[in-house]
């Protein structure tokens, strides 16, 4: 038995969600008293791979195959099931990001393994019972899922667990996978890398603005705040719909779900559909000129005021704080 964690590197580097997933896997492995393996597909340096050991991975496997450069969830699932069988893994951990959402359910169907997508906490185990928590009803409730299958897959929501560094005793090794050209049915024509420096889905701080900004020309101060804080920018749906901001920034029920440590909402009313995508944030700050705006009910800190007065002042204060640090 073992735990297998599938991680991805971006431009050859692992980011925080990977370390979170390894930490999560290590804790599950400790509960089960088994080893934890990590798997990475693609071109990553030995040192970078070894860094996964800092978070508890015992064995780190990598798969190299030119044809895997492009992401095809069916093929990736095939690779992972082969590694799963070679490492005799019973629990698989993935990250609930765009790629994880595509791969995990295929693995589940292939392995007849129960899948919890978007887990927010470690599993609870007692006797035969294995339960995992996840958010449901767009964050308005939490469900405890019981997993009945022998093999189990957990796709972890980012920012659910803090990476914990441990002593590194990991070994790094290539693993051979059998793939035929017929496995590759999906052709990639064009890739457009996300333009923002910090990916919204994984950002620890998100600065978000709504219709209260009056027009796209006023977003300079929002971008400035994001720059100072090292944050990603987001927006409400109407703002994306009228093309003030790119669609990729739209958060909420019909957009992206984010779960940062800090969400700053500027000139957003806090409609339930907006909250659905952001109410998993640890701390929420709301700036709105209307003291009755529903967002204040969900917020931790609030300022009633005009964004055009408050935001520039706040940016100065953040700047001062950052330079003093």
């Amino acid at each position: 038995m073992s735990v297998l964690v599938y991680v991805e590197a971006t431009d050859g580097k692992f980011k925080k969600p990977s370390f979170e997933a390894i930490t999560y896997g290590a804790k599950v492995a400790a509960m089960l008293n088994v080893e934890i393996h990590a798997l990475c597909i693609g071109e990553v340096s030995d040192d970078e791979l070894k860094s996964l050991g800092n978070y508890g991975a015992n064995k780190i496997w990598f798969v190299k195959d030119e044809r895997l450069k492009n992401f095809d969830p069916l093929v990736y699932a095939k690779v992972i099931t082969q590694v799963e069988s070679q490492t005799n893994s019973d629990v698989l951990v993935l990250i609930q990001n765009f790629n994880g959402k595509a791969i995990a359910p295929i693995l589940s169907a292939r392995l007849k393994a129960g899948l919890i997508s978007g887990a927010v906490d470690l599993p609870l185990m007692s006797g035969d019972s294995f339960t995992v928590k996840k958010n449901v009803f767009s964050g308005k409730a939490i469900a405890n899922y019981e997993m009945h299958s022998a093999k189990k897959i957990i796709a972890l929501t980012s920012n659910s667990i803090a990476p914990v560094a441990t002593e590194n005793k990991a070994t790094v090794q290539e693993i051979k996978i059998e793939l035929t050209d017929a496995d590759f049915k999906l052709k990639v024509k064009e890739v457009v890398k996300a333009s923002c420096k910090i990916s919204l889905a994984d950002a620890e701080i998100v600065v978000s603005a709504g219709r209260g900004m009056k027009g796209p020309e006023n977003w300079g101060m929002i971008e400035e705040m994001a720059n100072i804080l090292g944050a990603a920018t987001a927006c409400s749906r109407p703002v994306a719909d009228i093309n003030w901001r790119p669609h990729g920034e739209h958060v909420g029920q019909t957009g992206l779900t984010v779960r940062p440590n800090l969400y700053i909402a500027i000139g957003i009313s806090g409609a339930i559909q907006h909250l659905a995508g952001v109410n998993g944030s640890k701390v929420m700050v709301v700036i709105n000129k209307d003291a009755e705006a529903p967002f204040f009910k969900a917020a931790d800190y609030g300022i009633v005021g005009d964004v055009f007065e408050v935001v520039p002042k706040l940016n100065e204060a953040f700047k001062k704080f950052k330079s003093g640090n």
């Binding site: 992401f71 990001n97 024509k189 890739v191 457009v192």
Partner: peptide
Amino acid sequence: ISGGKETI
């Protein structure tokens, strides 16, 4: 996809 958009 993680990190961007692509046409397939």
